[in-house]
């Protein structure tokens, strides 16, 4: 690991700092690669400008996997003959789109709900290492993908995605089942505790709450659906006890 690698890697951890409506993470991505551009251009301002024209644009990718795009970009910028063909931006845009889809599915849709549900089950039973288990479990994959993604991009260049996406899809497939299983465990625990607490009425109330979230989601965003339902729950409980 060279100083340049380190310099790029730590900057990638801040890629969404300046997210905005027009360029999304364009500035963040460019910022991460500034050490590379400085080393490539020296003090030549026109060369620096040329590098910025090619690499400072709209950029939107899964933040954890954006290191791979940075690695590929570095590899291509350092290769003679790649610079002026417009290929760099084409590869960057294509790769970032695929990584967004694959990365979001893996981290946001499958992995995070799984890790958080496990942590919540721990804490529901008063085992307070739940947050620690979650942090270790999540960050193991997080750091692995951040760092390996960057080096894979650097090593394989445009071929970085070959094999990687298939592997990611396989892991996602396995974890999807695990997430669903854990959700089933969580549901069972919730209903069991509800039944112990208040018998059948609580179980029915639970079913109504689940149905309400599903119905509200058709009209409102997921966040507002659960907020509305939480507020309604608190109001209902208040009315019942007055």
């Amino acid at each position: 690991m060279t100083m340049l690698d380190l310099n790029i890697l730590w900057r990638l951890f801040l890629i969404q700092n300046s997210r905005n409506d027009k360029f999304h993470d364009g500035l963040g991505f460019f910022f991460a690669l500034i050490p590379l551009f400085r080393s490539l251009s020296g003090k030549d301002l026109s060369r620096r400008g040329e590098l910025a024209r090619r690499n400072f644009d709209y950029f939107n990718s899964n933040p954890v996997l954006s290191g791979m795009v940075a690695g590929v970009t570095r590899k291509m910028e350092e290769s003679e003959g790649m610079a002026d063909t417009g290929q760099i931006s084409r590869v960057r845009n294509t790769l970032s789109s695929v990584l967004t889809a694959k990365g979001d599915e893996f981290f946001e849709v499958v992995f995070l709900p799984l890790a958080l549900t496990i942590a919540c089950i721990f804490t529901i039973y008063g085992v307070y290492i739940g947050p620690l288990v979650f942090l270790l479990f999540y960050n193991y994959f997080h750091f692995k993908f951040r760092i390996i993604g960057y080096y894979r991009g650097l090593k394989l260049g445009q071929e970085a995605g070959t094999g990687f996406f298939e592997d990611l899809s396989k892991i996602s497939g396995v974890l999807r089942g695990a997430t669903a299983f854990t959700a089933g465990v969580f549901t069972s625990i919730a209903f069991f505790r509800g039944y112990q607490f208040g018998g059948t009425p609580v179980v029915i109330a639970g079913l109504v709450a689940i149905a309400a979230v599903t119905l509200l989601r058709r009209k409102y965003s997921p966040v507002f659906s659960v907020i509305i339902l939480f507020v309604l729950t608190v109001v209902l409980l208040s009315l019942l006890s007055i």
Binding site: V109, V110, P113, T117, C120, I124, R176, G177, A178, T179, A180, F181, A183, G184, F186, T187, I189, A190, R193, G194, F197, G198, V202, A205, G206, L207, A209, I210, A211, A212, V213, T214, R217, P222, S225, V226, L229, F230, T233, L237
Partner: peptide, 25 residues
């Protein structure tokens, strides 16, 4: 602690059913 998990289940179910993972659930 009894009531709030049902809200979480509602949103978790959405993910599970969207991914056609009813068997594992």
């Amino acid at each position: 602690y009894i009531f709030i998990p049902f809200i979480g289940i509602g949103s978790l179910l959405r993910i599970v059913l969207f991914q056609h993972q009813a068997f594992w659930f």
